[in-house]
């Protein structure tokens, strides 16, 4: 069976791959959106912390025998803790300044973190085995679905939707939305906003660390994996609209799929298609697809 002259299994395969990259875009841009909303900081260190997450998983397995499953739990906590330290020691002094300062600082941090791993491990990339439970593929009849890809899509969707639920439907989320909208007044109601800001940054980068662990078996663990991804993720955030939670999730997944399909139909454009869409969106809706005009 063929669709537009492309065999169905090939099409479905690229669609799956698109959903996999879309899952990473969604998780990373979600963290960026939450951080930007609360801290007013464009977190350029996000890609580096995602990479650090993958490396921590690799180091855990290689040096201390920490399994993939434990890494999935422990690495986000560790990366979140690193985030808390970054927020307390550096970012908290920048909130009242222009966005540019936060961007420059986190960009510098990204270079430092990347440089450290590059110095230690080189750039060739290290392998990380897929855990036994998730290796192999499912035969769906019309295609073979590698279990690990299905796992990535399922887990990241669950995490994204859980985050959305917490922010939009719970009291904690109401605090978060209130503190994002009017931090001073929210603090005047007795809510410890500085603490929430710190934990939000920790949570956002913890999400990046989690994505890093998920990515480790899917891609090579390399010091450059973050900077390769982060540029696209920023485009996703711009397209979705800064600070919109559901917008980042949907845009992330959608653009992953569009990218995957572009690979099938016009492979030459697959690495630029996201930026073309970004340009069009910026022309037609400068605040992004889901953003609110200010």
């Amino acid at each position: 069976m063929e669709i537009f002259g492309v065999p169905l299994p090939a099409l479905m395969g690229q669609l799956m791959l698109g959903l996999v990259s879309g899952s990473f875009y969604a998780m990373l841009s979600l963290g960026l959106a939450v951080i930007f909303g609360m801290l007013n900081i464009i977190n350029f260190a996000h890609g580096a912390l995602y990479m650090a997450g993958a490396f921590l998983a690799w180091m855990g397995l290689t040096y201390w025998g920490i399994s993939y499953w434990w890494s999935l739990l422990l690495v986000p906590l560790a990366v979140g803790l690193i985030g808390v330290v970054i927020e307390r020691t550096m970012l908290q002094w920048l909130y009242k300044l222009d966005h540019l300062y936060g961007l420059l600082l986190t960009f510098g941090l990204a270079l430092v973190i990347e440089g450290l791993f590059r110095y230690q491990y080189g750039v060739s990339g290290l392998p990380y085995a897929i855990p036994d439970e998730l290796s192999g593929a499912l035969n769906l009849g019309f295609m073979f679905l590698p279990k690990y890809r299905a796992w990535i899509i399922g887990v990241s969707l669950t995490v994204c939707l859980a985050t959305w639920f917490i922010i939009e439907k719970t009291q904690l989320g109401a605090y978060l939305r209130a503190a994002t909208e009017n931090p001073q007044l929210t603090q005047a109601f007795g809510i410890n906003v500085p603490l929430m800001v710190m934990l939000t940054y920790g949570f956002g980068v913890g999400l990046a660390g989690f994505a890093g662990v998920l990515a480790a078996p899917a891609f090579q663990v390399s010091p450059l994996m973050g900077s390769n991804l982060i540029i696209v993720v920023f485009a996703v955030v711009v397209i979705g609209g800064m600070g919109s939670i559901l917008g980042s999730i949907l845009t992330g997944l959608g653009l992953g799929v569009i990218e995957g399909l572009t690979k099938v139909f016009y492979a030459e454009a697959s690495s630029t298609v996201v930026f073309i869409i970004m340009a069009i969106v910026l022309l037609l809706r400068p605040a992004g697809l889901f953003g609110k005009e200010k």
């Binding site: 009291q171 109401a174 605090y175 939305r177 209130a178 994002t180 909208e181 009017n182 929210t186 109601f189 007795g190 809510i191």
Partner: peptide, 13 residues
């Protein structure tokens, strides 16, 4: 707060 419903505003503090 625009990002909260009337009742969420009421229950916030």
């Amino acid at each position: 707060y625009a990002s909260l419903s009337c009742e969420e505003n009421l229950l916030l503090p």
